[in-house]
Design a protein around this nucleic acid. Structure first.
Length: 434
RNA sequence: GUGGCUGUAGCUCAACGGUUAGAGCACCGCGCUGUGAACGCGGGGAUACGGGUUCGAUUCCCGUCGGUCGCCCCA
């Protein structure tokens, strides 16, 4: 019986592991240099933790099970409920703003597609306890800081932002009923994937009247500063909308001050799927063939309270290793394999093999990485192995080591070789080879 | 979960329904007993799985599984 990895999961062979580690190291580096600290929680949680926010429908999207005590549990499909739970416990004791990040392994029982698997790693960045736009802007900056660090410029990736306040004020102004609003949100979210006709057909299905459709058609594709001004003008009676527009402008100004304004613009088409966002929302998009958001987030000022915590505002985003690897691959920004082996120790003659082991062990004891060939074969063959392993240096244990105490060291990159006293070499293994 | 497309070696691809399913790259061995390349020779390794049609199936049909695209969903 042969088994393969379950649907939507991945095996990480060593080469894949190099990539995964590299991506997560970028997440760590960027988070830390932006002043975030890491947290984590359990890989499974109480099933009800996910029901609170999303209702019972969420249950079939989860991998869930019952333990022997009859408790309903679920493998975590997202990190925010865990974060909210943890914040609720200590919110009053933590200095504000709380800047936390995490890189959880998550599972969702979805149909896998490109960029979307059943098991993946996510980078979560959240700022809690700060309601000014500075937090929104810094959050977006962190995402862009990552993009910059991995070599993606505004020609490769862009961040679109909007405010839920603007969207809901526009729907109110169009007198769209509460019952219809969530369908309209979904339609707006899809707007830039659809033709104008297909968008209109979608609106028709929601059963909007002509003037409602006209209002939406007029503003749904606003995607720059002018569009924002037009909306602000149209909604100038609404204080909610005016504040929302001002908030978007302030965030864009702050991002300019951060030096990353070139990545960012307003876009009415970004509303984000679910209901808990309350203010700024944003999504990063690749500008190549990958038609998919590569990261997104927004402000959620009531969620922590809804989940039993204190009344405290928050803003955050998430992105996944799967979609980032696709994006980096598309623009040829994946890292090349680096040399990681310090020494390859070879024998000039099979009779000195035990000295090979001694030298190897001594190098390892000094903190160097060192390996040797399992087969006793010619010097040429052993050199081939050393080259295949990307060894920095090759140590040749000479056949007359017992009497001369001498070894040779070759610097592979510069192709320079010297013969040294074994003890002198071990005293300073990385010494210059002339 | 649902519909379309798809599945040949670790990877990229061949093979009219017909001999023992081929090749490149990769891997292993040898040429090669003092230095990484190149080359040459040799080797292992595949029709995803299960049925059906047929004298004969990698090829045609059905189912399962996986991948992928769209829908649902996107936390």
């Amino acid at each position: 019986m042969q088994f393969k990895a379950p649907k939507g999961t991945r095996d990480f062979f060593p080469d894949d592991m190099v990539l995964r580690r590299w991506i997560m190291k970028q997440w760590d580096d960027v988070s830390l240099r932006n002043g975030f600290v890491e947290y984590d929680g359990p890989i499974f949680e109480d099933l009800d933790l996910y029901r609170v926010k999303s209702g019972d429908e969420i249950v079939d999207q989860l991998f869930h099970f019952t333990d022997r005590g009859g408790r309903g549990l679920a493998i975590r499909p997202e990190m925010t409920p865990t974060l909210a739970r943890m914040i609720a416990v200590r919110a009053n004791a933590l200095p504000k703003p709380i800047k936390w990040y995490s890189q959880p392994r998550l599972c969702r029982a979805e149909r896998p597609q490109r960029g979307r698997l059943r098991e993946f790693f996510q980078w979560n960045v959240d700022i809690i306890g700060e309601s000014s736009e500075i937090a929104d802007a810094e959050c977006i900056f962190v995402l862009i800081d990552f993009m910059r660090k991995v070599g993606l410029s505004p020609e490769h990736v862009e961040v679109k932002l909007n405010s839920r306040a603007i969207v809901s004020a526009l729907l109110d102004a169009a007198q769209i009923s509460i019952q219809q609003q969530s369908a309209v949100y979904a339609a707006l979210d899809k707007r830039d994937k659809l033709s104008a006709e297909a968008f209109e057909a979608l609106l028709a299905k929601i059963d909007l009247n002509t003037s409602q459709k006209n209002i939406l058609a007029q503003f749904a594709d606003a995607c720059d500063a002018d569009g924002l001004d037009r909306i602000a003008e149209f909604l100038r009676e609404s204080s909610v909308a005016t504040e929302g527009c001002d908030a978007v402008r302030r965030v864009l100004d702050l991002l300019d001050a951060f030096g990353v304004g070139g990545y960012c613009r307003f876009d009415m088409g970004v509303v984000r799927g679910l209901a808990y966002y309350t203010g700024i929302v944003f999504e990063a998009f690749g500008k190549g063939g990958l038609k998919r958001a590569v990261g997104g987030g927004g402000r959620y000022d009531r969620l922590i309270e809804d989940m039993g915590g204190p009344t405290i505002g928050a803003v955050g985003f998430a992105t996944s290793d799967v979609v980032l690897a696709d994006l980096l691959n598309e623009f040829d920004r994946l890292p090349s394999q680096e040399c990681e082996l310090d020494f390859f120790v070879i024998d000039a003659d099979p009779s000195v093999f035990e000295t090979v082991l001694h030298v190897t062990a001594s190098l390892r004891e000094r903190g160097m990485s060192a390996v040797f060939s399992y087969q006793r074969q010619g010097v040429g063959k052993q050199f081939k192995q050393a080259a295949a392993k990307n060894a920095n240096r090759v140590v040749i244990v000479e056949a007359d080591i017992a009497s001369t105490r001498k070894i040779s060291v070759k610097d592979m990159a510069h192709s320079k070789q010297a013969t040294l006293e074994l003890d002198a070499f071990l005293a300073d293994p990385m010494q210059q080879i002339e």
